[in-house]
Design a protein around this nucleic acid. Structure first.
Lengths: 183, 183
DNA sequence: TCTGGATACCTCGGGTTCGAGGTATCGCCC
DNA sequence: GGGCGATACCTCGAACCCGAGGTATCCAGA
């Protein structure tokens, strides 16, 4: 997921590690940025896999920068990960938002809609803390005010996202049809 | 965080590993439950640390169950983790919801309010994807419909949680005052 | 002058997680 | 009666992440 985000950022422009660290922090909403001991090994992995190339830009500011460029293989990998993310059901909000943030790069309404539909399916699968066994949990039935808070917040979030998903899927499918008509 | 959740579940009742796995899945809203290779080592760690004890209950159902009981040290650790979670700023929604789900165990309105206040501070710190540098991002200014979706969903979520936090903090402080009057 | 902070990169060890595999028992259905 | 799925537990290796530490340059302020 970290590697995915790195590839995503490099899709638009070449960057160096330090700048990546800042952008990653902004993307995930983190206060504390990702640790150096996490980022630089990840870059090395991507380099070894042939997804990015590194060339040194000496003395641009203070220290020399190791500029990273996405290779063709890297771009292919990024598109593959957008199309078929490793986890079919994306439960972690950070992962999902990260995927969404780069979904534009997929550049095919039908494929984009497919990703959103998988998420829609996940959100409408009754298997989470919204249900007690088969029957849906009602906030009023929960004694614990904190657990009730979790449920209330999660419900609003989920409702908001569902509305957005349905609206956006509709728009993407319209787009796809128009494109089909144009062809 | 996994270990925290285990301690939390054991605060009310003794459980065996298999049952824990199911409850953990329900708590975090996961479709795919936590892996065995994650859960059982975690239980062993807690056992070694003296936070839980294990005694075998033979032939209850099919296979013998290793029932886990929270020790006094375990309960103390749980309360400590509720009071001062490892990460001061809890960025991961799963972590935060998990903490909230067990916050009732803390049983002191002032301490509970303190935890909520830390979260409030985190949510109101302008350093995430809500801001572009210093100025707040406006959804209309974002071209990418997917990134705009992220922002819209995150905004609603955050607004909902902020309202809940402020309301609940207020209630907890009232409770604390009444308790003070009673004493 | 010297200290702190920002820029910029790196390594190492320890801890955590996952996935794949293994071992058993029991009930159910074909 | 034989296999499948549920119950129930375990181990191992690979991967990953974090924190702590290290190196170096430059600028601003005390």
């Amino acid at each position: 997921m970290l590697e995915f985000a790195i590839l995503g950022f490099l899709a638009d422009t070449r960057l160096h590690g330090y700048e990546l660290r800042k952008r990653l922090a902004a993307l995930t909403g983190h206060i504390r940025p990702i640790a150096d001991g996490t980022l630089y090994p990840a870059i090395k992995r991507l380099e070894k896999a042939g997804f990015v190339t590194k060339d040194l830009e000496p003395g641009t500011v203070f220290a020399p920068r190791h500029m990273l460029t996405l290779t063709d293989a890297g771009r292919a990998e990024l598109l593959r990960l957008l199309r078929e993310p490793k986890e079919v059901f994306i439960t972690d909000e950070n992962h999902w938002f990260c995927l969404l943030a780069f979904l534009r790069l997929l550049d095919e309404p039908a494929a984009q809609a497919a990703v959103l539909k998988r998420r829609l399916k996940f959100l409408t699968t009754p298997a989470s803390f919204f249900y007690d066994g088969d029957k849906p949990l009602r906030a009023e039935d929960i004694d614990d005010p904190f657990r009730r808070g979790v449920l209330e917040i999660a419900r609003v979030t989920s409702r908001t996202e569902l509305e957005w998903l349905r609206r956006t899927i509709g728009e993407l499918e319209d787009e796809g049809e128009h494109a089909a008509v144009r062809n």
